[in-house]
Design a protein around this nucleic acid. Sequence first.
DNA 1: AAGTGGTCTAGACCACGGC
DNA 2: CCGTGGTCTAGACCACTTT
Lengths: 241, 241
Amino acid sequence: MSKYEHVREQVLDLLEPLAVGAPIPAERELSARLGVARMTLRRAVDDLVRDGYLMRRQGHGTFVAEPKIAQRLTLTSFSEDMRQRGMAPSSRTLALEVSPAGARLSRKLEVSPPDLIVMVRRLRLADEAPMAIEHLHVPQRLVPGLSAADLAEGSFYDLLEERYGLVVGTGLQAIEPTVTDAEESEVLGVPPHSPALLFERVTRDEGGTVVEFVRSVYRGDRYRITTELAPQRVRPRGRRS
Amino acid sequence: MSKYEHVREQVLDLLEPLAVGAPIPAERELSARLGVARMTLRRAVDDLVRDGYLMRRQGHGTFVAEPKIAQRLTLTSFSEDMRQRGMAPSSRTLALEVSPAGARLSRKLEVSPPDLIVMVRRLRLADEAPMAIEHLHVPQRLVPGLSAADLAEGSFYDLLEERYGLVVGTGLQAIEPTVTDAEESEVLGVPPHSPALLFERVTRDEGGTVVEFVRSVYRGDRYRITTELAPQRVRPRGRRS
DNA sequence: AAGTGGTCTAGACCACGGC
DNA sequence: CCGTGGTCTAGACCACTTT
């Protein structure tokens, strides 16, 4: 772990017991206390400010920020997402089968069409009420021995890391509006043709290998996306390809 | 303009003629050439990497990145958003009226209920085809003399800055799925009850004053959100309020 | 071994806010 | 005025990749 990451953890520990709005020690003092250069401390604090833990006021000080109203759109599992929203996540596996990828899936997963894919259909619940239907696709080669029981509890990403050594790196996600079809309405317990959000996500590990393709339908009446927007700083411009 | 911002502009100029994948000069050389410390150059390059213009490979070099597949969810105007998507934005004002804020709007805009609000209903087009309906609400005090003609062309944010000296700072946006009602379907030219995205945004200037509340309905068949997701680095934890 | 980006330092000066 | 965060410097060493 780099020094500034370590400092970030220390500052998190320091601000934890503080009330919202309370100041943390001045940068010069804190860097001395932690035994690092001020630049190193600032790098850590920069991160915490970006993540909404702290707020700076020039010429005044650095303060504990309001608890995040809006979490950033970040690469997180359903489980973690729900916990951040203050709900208890759970899951019910509706189907699990293994079959060849085929044309469309093989492109998404960057494998050969005949390669075997584990396909899982899961109902996702928050506080015991249906929240989303998830279609998960993972190349079988990456997760040998994966069973329905493995998916019953806990985060899939944690499982990937702990059992298979796959650390999630980046993801590309598309979001569009849709309405539920008859089957989705039934499973989610909403009227037919209810507004819903369709998520499609391709996730890669740290090495760039595609580890999953997920297609999820979220109930529109229970799920909304809230984001805090920053102004874009860089002037827009065209670029050659 | 700070030095590193100036450096960022210079680096942008430098990489503009380069093809995707081409390397830019090494950091030590480039910082010398631009007459700044390496740390200052790095701060500028950090920004450009975060914004997807450049890509670093440790021990190898820094390279011109692929044109962004996914723009970040950033505080940008409709005009800019459409240009980034490669379409030509335009606008048609459907209605403009001034009336008291009332209970709900006064909360959103953080003004008194009797305060006058400029309310604008606009059809937003991309490549001459309807894309969204926008309901814009701005306290009249902030934009005296605003007329429908002002909104016909150009970005509203540019207008705010140039004529009224209001620089957009942060925004809080909520996104949820919906279906078009009869009137929206008519104006947007889509079948009734088509999937659509509902955006609600509250925007503040740099001083924290609310400058606008916008409620927009986007066609689901023409508009999708694509985001690149980064793993969350900071451990999640509870915090007192 | 040489060259690259990644991190860290100790210090300087500037800009801003409150007293 | 003083203390705060904001920026910038010149140099050092580390980690990684390629030759």
